[in-house]
Amino acid sequence: MDTNVITIEHLKKSFGKNQVLKDINLNIVKGENLVVCGKSGSGKSVLIKCLVGLIEPDGGKVVLLGKDIDGLDSTALNELRKKVGFLFQSAALYDSMNVRENLSFPLRDLKSKSPEDIEALVVEALANVGLEDVAEKMPSELSGGQRKRIGLARTLILKPEIILYDEPTTGLDPITSKEISQLILDIQKKYNTTSIIITHDVECMRITSNRMIIIKDGVSVAEGTFDELSASDDEWVRSFFQ
């Protein structure tokens, strides 16, 4: 039987008079990659930020790994967040830290890890993204693709059960985009992670998605596999795949 890892029921969020999310309902099972599409400003990033409590929804319910995030205190929420990785659009590397410090930062609260364990995890995370030789570099010395990879490595270092990707291939050339998309797929296979991927990149959708939804005016208007949606009768839906 499939286990729901993420359950979203009637999620609503407004900013002033602008109702960004009107009624989002989703169930995502373990090991699934769900791609979320929609026009810019349709609330895709707001949706995944609501999942980790970065934005407080106005209504509805979010259950992550069996826990309703609305009822969690800050300590419990932080514990839950350690099981959820988040790759930001800009990678959000800490400018004042080098790559090694960036990667080890999420591990600092884990008292069970010795410095040797942490170093081993850093090396493993760098190997996972194919960048073993940049540990001493500062984020400003990295290319856009390398920054995304290091962001992904930092996300992976806590071995999250869920990973949320906010436009992982934006601003990258087609070859690097394809490499990042393949990396997302490899991570899913290697660690059996559950992912939500927000993207407009057709190649990324094709490579990474098990299922897709398209958001319009704050609600999910289409759902299916890449092949189903790309052959949809609705011209508006098909336009995302051109």
Binding site: E79, K82, F86, F88, L158
Partner: peptide, 18 residues
């Protein structure tokens, strides 16, 4: 402010740090 607008503070928060 620079950390805030480049989502570095959010990144710290979602990694379970304070």
């Amino acid at each position: 402010a620079s950390m805030k607008v480049t989502e570095q503070i959010d990144a710290m928060e979602v990694s379970g740090n304070n």
